[in-house]
Design a binder for these strands. Structure first.
Lengths: 342, 342
DNA sequence: TTGAAAGCGCTAACAA
DNA sequence: TTGTTAGCGCTTTCAA
């Protein structure tokens, strides 16, 4: 390989191989080299060969920042998740990322879930990259961030929830429906005294409300609620179960706002010799894969997270490439998976 | 707000507010507006106020693609992980991302772990973005990808392993040491017949080899090995335990290549009435948070993933800002956490 | 099918 | 402290 020391080169630039270098080597104009690389069908076989050859020889990798700037298309999609560790959302992110990659897009990952000041900064940072689309976990409440997003004109898909007022596109399911149906499911099994273990999270709150409503509609005693705050750990589940056993020992069914909390409840039940499901039935939320193989296996609410990611990728890519998306709202539903704990 | 219909504007561009617009509104030159936004200390109080005011009024968000192109600094860090779902690496990614965000950098996430052809494509896509640094999970074996990375000149930090030949920076620990020390730990507890349940993964392989060596060094019977292949699920752990109980019923200690596999082994043990730790001791790997609160709680090898992420962020940022990193190799070590299962 | 010119939105370099 | 100029590396637009 010949090393070209272009003495005219200024101190700017990264020094990497550019399309110019490739074009020069191939003996064509830069724009022709660009076409050969991006839209080979627009170029003669001869030119194509020469350019591809030059690409090989130089190890040229197109600079997507430059391309994005020139074309106003970054081929970047931003995803915002509240957390990544042990999170039900990662299944969605994984399938989203897969779909994007196959179509030549890349994923930027931002973590919200701290303060709202942080969220604003995050969104500003995201918009600064001029992504071709934004994936949001949850729906964005009215506020500065929402206004900014709207103003940016970037396609947005909100997920994991439903709302009559989406920013743009929406792929989710009804948390109220889940709360109601889980309550009915438990009541139909003859359970009389229901409890709820929930994290301090707005969506869990809506499931809880609908759950309580369904119970009172059946004329049953009030739901015993344990709010574990921000801590979604297994330990919180155990502590919640201690409270239930102490304060409401007649409880015979518990709906938890996450599978991990449910596992904690199960763990404490076993530790205290409380039979599951005989004395207490337990239902989780999220369908973390491995809980189906525990003994007893956990009944839970399954959300098809991979499907959400797949559809979100399709929506975002369609919009990025100028195609309309219709309908822009999809309810992916949910399923109550009955296993041993009920 | 007045809408400016600039009739001279061509059909190019995104139509968004640019630094020019802000500068014009503030009555200064674009570069001055740039300084006010990026290096406010270089600008008079009066100018600063006018520019910031104009930014507020217009809702200007700097275009980082343009900035990155002009300055050859993308403020983007790419991270490559094999998988995101239920993965021990996410703790690292989360702390990496946190550290980067606070310093004004953003994270691009790529998933390897498919074919090596996929990995090459991924790396090419990553390099195309001209990130200021690349975070790799694991070490990159010699090959086309490694050569490319080296040629790109982008700072790289490899993690979760040690090697005498890192690409650039390295933050990890010794898998051989872990295998050896876990074996010694178990042997010192009086265990005689050791087994290993492992996924088909090169690092797990090195732990396994060292484990077996330590055992034979003590003159004990060969280690009974179950390779669960690519499936790291709880179910595989259960199946592995079925095999052990059937083929090597005298096994009294099992080292698993992940906590989830260990949980599967525990689950099957309980299902079959095998006392843990009385008849069989179990050690996991990774220290997934919730397993410390299970009954029995799992003994495991703890890796401080958050620390790896934090240090990686520091390394990468230092290099991105032109500071040297020395030493470039850090061994973060590990800890054997003894809990109920041993 | 190929190319010349212009510019995407920003910042480095130099000058005042 | 502020501004002018000239790019960064690519693609759009228009012309041949």
């Amino acid at each position: 390989m010949t090393r070209q020391t272009n003495s005219k080169r200024s101190r700017r630039g990264s020094g990497a191989i550019t399309l110019r270098d490739v074009a020069k080597l191939a003996g064509v104009a830069p724009i022709t080299a660009s076409r050969a690389v991006n839209t080979p069908e627009q170029v003669s076989a001869d030119v194509l060969k020469k350019v591809l050859d030059a690409v090989q020889r130089t190890g040229y990798v197109p600079n997507r920042m430059a391309g994005g700037l020139a074309s106003s298309r970054s081929r970047l999609i931003a995803a915002v998740v509240p957390s990544t560790v042990m999170s039900v959302f990662m299944e969605t992110i994984e399938s989203l990322n897969g779909g994007l990659f196959d179509a030549g897009y890349q994923l930027m990952l931002g973590q919200s879930g701290y303060s709202s000041a942080h969220e604003e900064l995050l969104l500003e940072a995201v918009i600064g990259r001029r992504p071709d689309g934004i994936f949001l976990t949850g729906i964005l409440p009215p506020g500065k961030s929402r206004t900014r997003l709207l103003a940016s004109g970037i396609p947005v898909v909100e997920t994991w929830d439903l709302t009559p007022t989406p920013i743009d596109m929406l792929i989710g399911f009804s948390h109220s429906d889940i709360g109601r149906e889980v309550a009915n499911f438990l009541l139909n099994k003859g359970r009389k005294r229901l409890a709820l273990v929930r994290a301090d999270d707005e969506r869990a709150g809506r499931r809880a409300t609908a759950f309580a409503e369904a119970v009172s509609l059946h004329g049953h005693q009030n739901v015993f609620v344990v709010n574990v705050g921000d801590s979604r750990s297994l330990k919180s589940g155990r502590e919640a179960m201690v409270r239930i056993l102490h304060d409401a020992p007649d409880v015979d069914a518990i709906f938890c706002s996450s599978d991990l909390l449910a596992l904690g409840v199960m763990t404490e039940a076993r530790a205290q010799g409380v039979a599951v499901p005989e004395r207490v039935a337990i239902v989780g939320f999220g369908d973390v894969p491995f809980l189906s193989d525990m003994v007893p296996s956990l009944s839970t609410v399954r959300i098809n997270g991979a499907d959400i990611g797949r559809q979100a990728a399709r929506f975002l890519i369609d919009r990025a490439e100028g195609r309309a998306v219709d309908p822009r709202v999809v309810d992916v539903g949910f399923a109550i998976i009955e296993r041993d704990t009920t």
